[in-house]
């Protein structure tokens, strides 16, 4: 009887017809995954992309965006649930949920997985060009107390939260600090470092490959793409800690094609489909059994396999308004 129910559940969306509108990051959705879904469900998939979470939220807030699927990061997901902007679709009860790795089930942003399924996850740390940067690179001091030949050739991400989080780790200050004295120390550190920073730019791959920067904050998947073009680039999991993030598949309130959206959410939790995401976007997925379908070179890549002694990634919820005001103040002063 249960088998029949599962069969019906899995089979039911196969009759869904029409369209599916996905709103996601650019170059993030594998074309072969889309083609497979379209063939299997007889649904036409349309993809729009955003360049920041703020853009996505602003569009949803304005209403009438007409999207069926969004792919928010962990902190944004928490906000969307709190603000009642996503459909409760009971992901935990979907047939393919059995494939979700235990690690990604009870997450702070969706503790019961009622609203969202894992899409991909990665980390934000930094990369070095080992042709220039010699010796032990496992500490954030590479960025904050740089060697002479690194000075002036450092790139930081253009994201005040990521930069400030990193400075806080170097100083041993907790994330989202509401203590002005602590944030003053963060500002002093960043102001000292700014003299050695070439740019605050998120195009880290291009900067490293061209040699403009020899040390750069980076996301792990992007560092891997950089290494493809310049083999001396190495991603570092710093011993002071680093930020982890997960993008999730969710359905915005009032999605016009709810059934198709649910079918997509269930679809991306199948191991062979999740593997397509990793093969394309170069980030880990959260699905058990997907390893078997991942390209061997990718599966063994250092960027997605932290060394045994690396600390665990730290997932950071949205800071309080007080902490955000301090972060804004530090960043405004730093940029003045």
């Amino acid at each position: 009887m249960r088998a029949l129910a599962i069969l019906l559940l899995t089979a039911a969306p196969a009759f869904a017809e029409g369209d599916l509108f996905i709103y996601t990051w650019g170059e993030y959705t594998p074309p072969d995954l889309v083609a497979k879904f379209e063939a299997e469900f007889g649904v036409k998939v349309h993809i729009d992309s955003y360049d920041s979470m703020e853009t996505m939220i602003a569009k949803l807030r304005a209403g009438g965006a007409g999207y069926d699927i969004i792919v928010p990061g962990d902190a944004t997901m928490q906000v969307l649930i709190a603000e009642d902007m996503v459909e409760k679709i009971d992901v935990f009860a979907m047939p393919n949920y059995v494939n979700v790795d235990d690690k990604w089930r009870e997450v702070y942003w969706d503790p019961k997985r009622e609203y969202s399924a894992p899409w991909a996850w990665g980390s934000t740390a930094f990369a070095v060009d080992t042709a220039v940067v010699k010796g032990d690179t496992s500490s954030l001091s590479v960025l904050f107390a740089p060697a002479d030949d690194v000075k002036g050739r450092i790139n930081m991400l253009r994201d005040m939260n990521d930069v400030i989080n990193m400075a806080e780790r170097y100083l041993g200050i907790p994330r989202c600090s509401e203590n002005p004295d602590e944030m003053k120390r963060v500002l002093e550190l960043l102001e000292t470092q700014k003299a050695w920073v070439k740019s605050y730019d998120s195009e880290t791959k291009e900067l490293m490959v061209s040699g403009e920067a020899v040390v750069s904050m980076s996301w792990n998947g992007y560092a891997m793409r950089a290494r493809d073009e310049k083999p001396t680039i190495a991603y570092v999991y710093p011993r002071e800690g680093y930020t982890g993030w997960m993008d999730n598949v969710a359905v915005p309130k009032g999605a016009p094609h709810l059934d198709n959206a649910k079918a997509w959410v269930n679809f991306v939790m199948a191991p062979e489909n999740a593997a397509m995401i990793t093969n394309y976007a170069r980030y880990s997925n959260g699905i058990k059994g997907s390893e078997a379908f991942i390209e061997p070179a990718l599966a063994a890549a250092p960027e997605i396999n932290p060394p045994a002694d690396a600390p665990a990634p730290e997932f950071i919820p949205t800071c309080s308004p007080e902490a955000t005001a301090l972060i804004d103040k530090v960043w405004t002063k730093l940029m003045n």
Binding site: N161, V197, D328
Partner: peptide
Amino acid sequence: GGKTLMLGNLIGMQFQGSR
């Protein structure tokens, strides 16, 4: 290189990260 703010960037920042 995102190293200094002009008015446009300051305004943009308020609608993004600074909320």
